[in-house]
Computed example of a mutant assay.
Amino acid sequence: MATTDRQATTLALAHALSAAERGLAVIPLSRTKLPALRSPHRDDPAAGPCHGECGRFGHGVYDASTDPARIRALFAAAPRATGYGIACGLPPHHLIGIDLDVRSDTDSSVSSVSSVALRELALRHLFTIPATVVVLTPSGGRHLWLSGPPDAVVPNSAGRLAPGIDIRGAGGYLVGPGSRTDHGVYTAAPGTAHLPPATCPPALLRLLLPPPRTPRARGTAPPGSAPAGSHGQGLVQFVLAAHEGQRNTRLFWAACRAYEDGIGPALVAPLVDAALNTGLTEREARATIASAARMTGHRP
């Protein structure tokens, strides 16, 4: 192995140990940003799912640790590692990563689509991103580190929040600053390396969490499924696409169509969830839907 690779591995281990001192669980990564240790079950097609219960290394993010001895052992088993990954969703920080990609079809003087999309979301849902750790990627993107509550499981997603915005949550990982990849080095933005991951704004957290399941009576169809069909799902999507200034109007229109088509009662919960995602309160949403029911001659 080349001297430069050995140096990269040594530096990656040093950065990983430093991150672990801050309570961040880490794993070694290769130059491709993938876990540096291969699965010990790769040659056993009959092996069931294993998250490290077998006691061997090679289970990706499930190997992540803050224990210096274990981290050194992980890197010793991965001598070609040149970076490290930070597991999301684990205590004490319950890290959430906001991955902002950049535009590849324009020059760097043009603001990235993802940054603009995040600003629009912040304006629409009335939240601000607090001062926090920001990691700059070799491609010009940014990773924002936020801390979630211990009882919230934020799922990983790609582009669900907005185009160009990926979310790293439970079961995912972020490439740590100081990691060297095929495309360059990840670095902490000036003035942010010393910061702890800031608390995720509640309004943003609501957008990141999956819609809550509404309790239903035994024997009834799930909200927004069988009784509503594809038409009902289309009405829900119509509400989800609303911008500020048209949220109540779209919700009222969709609720009217639902009651006229006989699927109003089954669609109340999905429409309320959709309205909450656009920024309306539950009280506002239910009042608007009740108005639509009365307007169409139905009991709310």
Rank of each mutant, 00 (worst) to 15 (best):
A131C: 05
S179C: 01
P177C: 00
S104P: 03
A170T: 15
G140R: 10
A162T: 02
L205Q: 08
A162V: 03
L209H: 02
S157I: 01
R180S: 14
L123C: 07
R160W: 00
G164H: 10
H183D: 15
R119G: 05
A217F: 14
V135H: 13
V175N: 03
E120C: 07
P190S: 14
H94K: 13
W145V: 07
V134R: 15
R142V: 01
P177E: 09
H125R: 15
T132I: 04
P150K: 12
L195Y: 12
L121T: 09
D107M: 06
L136K: 14
L195H: 14
R213W: 05
L161M: 10
V135Y: 14
S139H: 13
L144D: 06
A203W: 07
R213P: 00
P197G: 11
R124K: 12
R206L: 09
C200P: 03
L95C: 14
R213I: 15
Y186R: 06
P150G: 10
L144R: 06
T187G: 02
V110N: 01
R168E: 00
A193I: 10
A188T: 10
P202A: 15
V113Y: 12
D182S: 11
P138T: 01
H183C: 11
L208Y: 03
L121G: 03
P215K: 08
R213D: 15
T106C: 12
S108R: 15
D166L: 02
T187I: 10
S104Y: 13
A217P: 09
V185Y: 08
V102A: 07
H94A: 11
D166S: 07
G159E: 01
L207T: 02
G141A: 08
A122S: 15
G164T: 07
T181W: 00
L100Y: 09
H183F: 12
G141E: 03
P201S: 08
P149T: 10
S112Q: 13
H125T: 11
L195W: 12
R206N: 12
R142W: 00
A117L: 00
L174Q: 07
A152H: 12
S114T: 04
S111I: 10
I165A: 04
A203L: 09
L209E: 02
R103K: 14
G141N: 08
I165T: 06
G159C: 01
L144T: 01
H94G: 13
G171A: 10
P155D: 04
G178A: 01
V133W: 11
R168K: 15
H94N: 15
A162R: 00
A158R: 12
A217W: 11
G169P: 03
P215F: 04
E120A: 13
S114R: 03
V102Q: 08
R216Q: 12
P149S: 13
L207R: 06
A122R: 09
T128K: 13
R180D: 07
H194N: 06
V175Y: 01
L161G: 07
D101R: 05
I96K: 02
T199H: 08
S157T: 12
R213Y: 05
G97C: 06
L209C: 04
A122T: 09
L208M: 05
D182E: 15
V110E: 11
L209T: 09
V133Y: 05
L205Y: 05
T214Y: 07
S147N: 10
L136D: 13
V153R: 14
L174A: 12
L144S: 08
V153F: 11
A188C: 05
G159Q: 04
T181S: 15
H143L: 13
A131H: 14
A131P: 07
G172L: 06
N156M: 08
